[in-house]
Design a protein around this nucleic acid. Structure first.
Lengths: 199, 199, 199, 199
DNA sequence: AATGAATGAGGATTCATTCAT
DNA sequence: GATGAATGAATCCTCATTCAT
């Protein structure tokens, strides 16, 4: 016939509790991909489909929309933390990792930007702890005497990141990276290679 | 036929064609307010309701979503142009007007930010001419030798604005203004009083 | 601006009562064209626009939807009447004119077909008099002894026309004419040249 | 976000996935009834309501308008196929079944008639395979030497059906059947009892 | 614990119709 | 008498969320 979903197919079998962790990871990965392409307002159903799970599973792991967005952000933040905790971690190097995330993922930018005025809650509201962890990781490898460490402007560091994220617009990653680097340059801040954290 | 019977009930008065211009203005004003609170994805119906007109009027004046957003942005850009064209216009003064718009209006930020990755088109796509007019107005009062006039980075000026807009997040206008000023300071750029263009 | 209808333009001047008849004719002509392309459900606004008049004028001349459709059909019927009244009018010749209308105009077909089951009223209801005039004109030149004149099936004549109209489907006039002729052939009825009535 | 909050009110019971097949059938049945009364342009919402399901279910099973119309037509075509495949199937008998469908269902007629000029696509476009299946079933039981089997007019068979469908207008089934039979008679073609296919 | 169907509110869009000018 | 703006009901369609299985 000319028809469609109407199940007739055998259902994919309940893979049992063991799959739970895997499902969660798949959902986060799917969300990251979908967000990157369609933005944060993408239908949740698409995330579930991409992850290869039912809608119900998504709700089981992530009770609300923010919760899955936070999970994506959390992975990003963790990478930054790891970059900052690495042996010979340098400030410029960590900024390179941060920049890489900004360039890659519209979601990361969106999450940082997210504020009430755009119908979303401020990152602080979305994931106060993540924001804090991100700031701490960055501050941790800030050399003494760095201009961003000015004691009279304690949030200059995060402000700078937000500023760069504001600059990162454009259709292609290349264009976005170019703009990100130009932004750091305009701030007079040195950035290491733009790349994900490895090892 | 199978169409729109239109109820026999009393209809709420047709204010007549004279109202057209007024309606259009009311729509733009309503859109500005709604955008500021709910972001660019606010339901169009809410804009119409706020403007006190029927849905149809909105569609008559603005056939698609971008078209009303552009109208709002156009007013902003015009104010910047006027500020830049004024008698003793200074660069810092114009930046103050720009900053005022950034602080006031999530829409202005959104329009500048809007890029494909969020499911909307880059401001350039949304309103290429507006983007160009905005840039020209700003460039026009940039003093020779200003660091943003670096000949090897012709878009540093717009980049800086985008960066500041990235910094302007926060629930209250006060907080947003504070951050905007901190951002300009971080760029080492002097800004005049943050205020709308007067006279 | 990026804007649209909002009148600013001088309004086209009220051409006075003398224009009334011309407007009516323009509306009928416009309706015929629009119907042919978009079918009978085309928006009335499009008809008015094509005719170059305001919506109000359409309503003045044709208080409801059927009324303009009838006016279009009336012109067709009149042509058939004229063809039938002509000097050396032959039955085959008149059928050629009828066929031409069927081929040309989806509207003519639609009007003949129109029946309650499709949400429209039977042609009889839509324009009983037109239907009657059409039948009379055709019967008038039916030769004695013609098989469609069978006394025991008084409406065979109109039935045959309806049948041919049922056959006239297809995207191009050529295809439609081909099918119309094949249909007459299948009925064993001779048809003259498929052409509008001239002179 | 700006989306579908879904009221907290009591929701009317989810009959569960088991209902899927039943829902689909209910939708097709509802569509058939609605089409018969209101024509193919009937609001989809009415079909859903008549079927006793939500709008979403309709869209799940039938992603677009054509898809549900095709499903209705498919059932008709299948009945004709079954009639043609039956033991002592005769051409006249199958035509009786065809005629029954024409008489019953404005939808069946509409689907056969549907052509671009009315803003819808020709049946061939709507459901090319159905059209083909219908033709094949009919051709299959056409006796050798039958006049509709004329080798020089291969589509006379379908043309004849279209012609009869053109004749089938009128408010009541009785009137429609009377006209259908008169049409076949005019074509000199014998038709069996007008009835649905049984057994 | 997983699946994915069902629900239905909400938002977009189109036009028939009225009526101030 | 003409114009075309305004109105808003009706339809389309999409998804967030629930829940039977």
């Amino acid at each position: 016939m000319t028809q469609h979903p109407t199940s007739d197919a055998r259902r994919p079998a309940n893979r049992g509790p063991k799959a739970a962790a895997g499902n969660r990871a798949a959902l986060v990965a799917a969300a990251r991909e979908i967000y990157a392409v369609d933005g944060l307002d993408a239908p949740l159903s698409r995330i579930a489909r991409r992850a290869g799970v039912g809608q119900g599973v998504l709700y089981r792991h992530f009770p609300d929309r923010d919760s899955i967005a936070s999970a994506v952000l959390e992975e990003n933040v963790r990478q930054v933390e790891e970059a900052a905790a690495g042996e010979g971690a340098s400030f410029a190097g960590v900024l390179g990792v941060v920049t890489w995330h900004l360039v890659q993922s519209a979601a990361f930018i969106g999450l940082l930007h997210a504020d009430g005025a755009n119908g979303r809650s401020h990152a602080h509201a979305l994931a106060p702890d993540l924001s804090e962890r991100f700031a701490r990781a960055l501050r941790g490898c800030l050399p003494d005497g760095h201009r961003l460490a000015a004691p009279d402007a304690p949030d200059d560091l995060m402000l700078a990141v937000a500023m760069v994220s504001g600059a990162v617009i454009g259709p292609t990653p290349e264009e976005r990276e170019r703009r990100a680097l130009a932004a750091w340059r305009l701030l007079g801040i040195t950035v290491g290679p733009v790349a994900p954290f490895q090892q």
